[in-house]
Design a binder for these strands. Structure first.
Length: 234
DNA sequence: GCGACAG
DNA sequence: ATCTTGTCGC
């Protein structure tokens, strides 16, 4: 096998997996906000994508909000051809390129990004949130709606209740990969895991802080809504 | 070999 | 993810 380019998105599945293994070790899983590593979070962004034309077009959306006020300050929506198929475990190669194009159109880079998908809770510990965060060197959190890997018990029924997502057989079995968090009473929980430059504990705290009255935290919920806005409205 | 499998 | 209508409940 040839050496996988350290910065390319059009890789074969085999090379994409090799790249994930090579970059996983560079992900920082402790709190390092801002240039100095301890700046306050004043801006938080949510990102998500949707597909159109039977999957041939990918639409990336980013919504910027103030923190902790959660007032929307910027909204970006871009479209481009889909270039990578959906392959479990390789989601970042399909969505990150479009997300980067949308994020670079923001007037300023956010202090934190909430992603729709897993971060550390990934077969090779390199989910979409890790990949995007490492690429931009910005703190990121993975907030997924369903499980990709690992096992867990059912969290309590109250808002804020959690259950740990634990690794199955493989390297470090039983390792804590993320948290299954109940963001609203009696609603299906979400899976929270660290992306880049953040600890799991802080990821859970911030996700909960952004989850005001819906199952999904505001940044991600609004980005999801924006990505599905068809051309006609404004 | 047989399932599982983010969006 | 997307394809799809109405409907039950707070």
């Amino acid at each position: 096998m040839t050496t996988a380019p350290l910065h390319a998105w059009d890789l074969s599945p085999k090379d994409a997996i090799a790249l994930q293994k090579a970059l996983a070790g560079a992900v920082v899983r402790s709190d390092r906000f801002g240039p100095g590593g301890r700046r306050a979070i004043k801006q938080v962004a949510g990102v998500d994508v949707a597909f159109a034309d039977g999957g041939r077009t990918i639409r990336a959306a980013v919504v910027m909000l103030t923190h902790p006020g959660l007032d929307v300050t910027d909204q970006i929506l871009i479209e481009r051809p889909t270039t990578f198929p959906y392959v479990p475990g390789l989601l970042s190669f399909r969505e990150v390129p479009a997300l980067l194009e949308a994020l670079r159109q923001l007037p300023t880079m956010p202090d934190l990004i909430l992603c729709d998908g897993h971060g550390y809770a990934h077969p090779r510990r390199f989910g979409l949130a890790c990949h995007l965060g490492l690429w931009l060197d910005v703190p990121t959190i993975g907030v997924a709606k369903s499980r990709l890997t690992g096992s867990h018990d059912e969290p309590g029924p109250a808002k804020g209740d959690i259950a740990w997502l634990l690794a199955g057989k493989g390297v470090r079995p039983g390792e804590r990969l993320g948290a299954v968090l109940r963001t609203r009473e009696r609603v299906k929980p979400v899976y929270v895991s660290a992306g880049h430059r953040i600890s799991l504990k802080t990821a859970v705290t911030l996700t909960l802080r952004c989850a005001t009255r819906y199952r999904l935290p505001e940044p991600t919920r609004l980005a999801d809504k924006l990505s599905k806005v068809h051309r006609t409205g404004s």
